[in-house]
Design a protein around this nucleic acid. Sequence first.
DNA 1: CGTACAATTGCGAATATTCGCGGAGGGAAC
DNA 2: GTTCCCTCCGCGAATATTCGCAATTGTACG
Lengths: 146, 146
Amino acid sequence: MSCEGETVALLRSGGHRLTPQRQRVASALQHAGGHRTVEELHALIAHEQGAPMPLSTVYRALTTLKELRAVSEIDAGGRSAFAWVDRSRPHHHLVCRGCGTERDLDPALLQRLGDAIRAATGFEAFLDHFAITGQCESCRQGAARA
Amino acid sequence: MSCEGETVALLRSGGHRLTPQRQRVASALQHAGGHRTVEELHALIAHEQGAPMPLSTVYRALTTLKELRAVSEIDAGGRSAFAWVDRSRPHHHLVCRGCGTERDLDPALLQRLGDAIRAATGFEAFLDHFAITGQCESCRQGAARA
DNA sequence: CGTACAATTGCGAATATTCGCGGAGGGAAC
DNA sequence: GTTCCCTCCGCGAATATTCGCAATTGTACG
Ligand SMILES: [Mn+2]
Ligand SMILES: [Mn+2]
Ligand SMILES: [Zn+2]
Ligand SMILES: [Zn+2]
């Protein structure tokens, strides 16, 4: 994956320094894909060759990358996880509180929300990657019967 | 405020036990209003007369009340806070990542999103109380100039 | 290329949150 | 009202996350 350039440009544009720690965290998350916990990223980085990195540095790198919208933090049910943000391809999750099943949500629906918010208030909502909790259809029917 | 009845009914309906700890946490949050941290609720409860309550019990009571949708957890910028949920009067926040200012969002916009999700997927999204981050109009203009 | 300075890291400690376990007590059944 | 069972609580320990500070190191400048 040729993603180093993207990370470099993002950090520079935000006025942040380009450090190997930030690059390694960004690279680990980009290459691992999906939703990753801090622990997972830390382990992935430890398995590489190179200096070990303390957990606190992973946390700090993720905080910086979140500020730049390069990374999103999501709370899908259990604990929080991080994902690399592809702004050109937003995606979102519907998580059922009853059975825990998860399905994706058409990003156009959230884009419409963002457009409505901007039209009504001038505020630009960052809707890159969301997890919306609720009740799936089958759990709802089960609850209605009871 | 006459809110004990509501809490009692909610706990009973969820098949949970009605304990004084849960009632005290619920009452503290209802009477304090707004967004409250665990620490704040713990302090409010400690200032009452009655047995002191360990912090872990406050956490557990809040977890239970969240499952029942009596309480919502929100992450408005800094750390997480809890609020009592009034399902008949949902409200949401727009938080600017640039300047930190916060304004309310017309709940009708999120209700439309919920309707669209239900129509498209059958999933009922719980959209009682959200904090959406982004960039306010003035910060956006400042960033565009730079 | 060498210097200067502020941003960032590593480390350990502080804080925040969750867990495991034995005992207490809510509530259903007589 | 009494009994019994299973959920829940109090406690302390484990885990997760943040913070303070001295040492390091990107980066702008000459
Ligand atoms: Mn995702
Ligand atoms: Mn609110
Ligand atoms: Zn379900
Ligand atoms: Zn702003």
